[in-house]
Design a protein around this nucleic acid. Sequence first.
DNA 1: CTGAAAGCGCTTACAG
DNA 2: CTGAAAGCGCTTACAG
Lengths: 354, 354
Amino acid sequence: MKGKATSFDIAYRAGVSQATVSRALRGSPLVNEETRRRIEAIARELHYTVDKNASNLRRQRSGTLALLLFEDPTSDGSLINPFFLSMLGAITRASARQGHDLLISFQQLSHDWHADYHDSHKADGLILLGYGDYLASRGKLERLEEQGTPFVRWGAVDDGQPGIAIGCDNAGGGRAITEHLLRLGRRRIAFLGDASPHCPEFLDRYRGHCAALAAAGQTSDQALQIDAADSTEEVGYTATLGLLDAGTAFDAIFAASDLLAIGAMRALGERGRRVPDEIAVVGFDDIPLARLASPPLTTLLQDTKIAGEMLVDTLLRQIRGETVHNQVLPAQLVIRRSCGTGRAAEDGPPDPAA
Amino acid sequence: MKGKATSFDIAYRAGVSQATVSRALRGSPLVNEETRRRIEAIARELHYTVDKNASNLRRQRSGTLALLLFEDPTSDGSLINPFFLSMLGAITRASARQGHDLLISFQQLSHDWHADYHDSHKADGLILLGYGDYLASRGKLERLEEQGTPFVRWGAVDDGQPGIAIGCDNAGGGRAITEHLLRLGRRRIAFLGDASPHCPEFLDRYRGHCAALAAAGQTSDQALQIDAADSTEEVGYTATLGLLDAGTAFDAIFAASDLLAIGAMRALGERGRRVPDEIAVVGFDDIPLARLASPPLTTLLQDTKIAGEMLVDTLLRQIRGETVHNQVLPAQLVIRRSCGTGRAAEDGPPDPAA
DNA sequence: CTGAAAGCGCTTACAG
DNA sequence: CTGAAAGCGCTTACAG
């Protein structure tokens, strides 16, 4: 009977009806305590577990959430932005804690994922994760909403996209970074990252950056905003080489993501520009690598644990029919060595390798 | 009818029986071509998808695999060894390619995961992933086998554990590393990593190391084998400080994982020991960070893409009732700067920051 | 507190 | 090639 016992087997041995077994095992208060104990003992003995397919079919739910990661299609087979991996871990844990299974899948924005998971009762709701071109995905999100599929997405909040979004305070974070750099005496801050509606999170970070400049009475120099389509180390490296080649003077780089920042530091290192003495570098995300970079990278911490819990919690409430709202999570400046200490530039010792 | 159409709705509109709809949509060759086309058109129009719970219940399968990650319980909430994340990505893709959904879950070895996924028909089989104490998990694996649960695990092969294992050639990899270091003139090679049956993968790497030493007519010095219980940067850092404090002379470190190696390099850097000029460092895994470390880390590449495909493929064949076998995948030496170039030590320039 | 019965939405022998 | 019917293993009104 290995792994095959049904509620009928238990009912037979316990001398009760199958219905009573089901009630007892689901914790119904209707069942006599002694009966319940007997049933539970037999269930344990037989290694019984409720058949999820039968249970779900009957209850018209799945007890499962689906996490859809939208990855950059250009990226290598196995590489994912570590930030999303961190989110993945947090979401997996939060989901388990709430008693839900988690399906995971990588999707291209172009595919037909939107009509699958919910209609087929594979999942009760979707979590959408990943930098993608938000303009391109709008149609799919609208269809999800039309179909009544519960979903939440991580990303820019209040950007007019359909559905519930949870994200960090990108504008506030961008402002905090630039304020910090200004405080340290940096005046020519390059912004590395796509500042367009295609990438609203980066755009918000850029807006925060510009707001801080404006508050300090400075204007933003167009020549210092470098588009970086993808958020990868390689792109950050290439973009920074381009910036150096263009000959524009700058004393700091605000990279819209840690991966871009790490690539920027590699380019600077190769060209013999010292970080932070000549050029301060700041990232965004606080991926594990940021702490290990050389020099360790100043960045903005997005708390993925809280984010994951928030995403799962909001989605489950939506599934239950409650009214849910967008939410903005604070981001916290983590100061390490890559931004310098505010002393006069050019006189610090070079950083030893980490 | 949003997301609620059933095969009966389609049958009604198509003027056929529900059974024919089911056949047509499952691609049965019994159905008339014209009938099939009509049914498919209506299904599309109604946004119909087969209810997985009903289908699975009837077919007594789930079309789902479960990936269980056994994490180091001491690790931080969201951190996972990047190597396993890379495996996770590869497994997710391979699983999708084979038309299976993937459930993901983090498990403590102590929990009762073994009796859950298969019995409840949540998954047709399990993939087990993660450094864990293999001696401690033996009982669970035995029970899985007893229950007839199909499962494969990534790890040491032929270590006498129950079930099918797929892993890389740890002994061969360890030998390759040490041979390379010897070729470069290193003579006192410290091995960083738990060399005990609790951690058979590391043990195999150590054995390969010792085999290479023996082949070169050297004996392994016990003082140069440092246990490192967990595979984390922090542990590598601490262990290396300990090694330095012990005063044992050494000119190379063979770390059993990249994370350990990166921690080792940090410790060496802090103590002013130059890598690779004074001390060569080599890791194992080729995580993305290895390439970005400073200096870039020489390591052994485990091809996670192939590994993921192999795991999924083997598990599916096992589920289908085929006989499957353990498999060893080759590991490939990736030479970067951390091991030096074989020129005399002490005369190289210090490495610029990456 | 318990049981008999209906039904969730499919798949698949069986009969034609 | 198609249909009528059984049944996968549960959950839950309904009746007692």
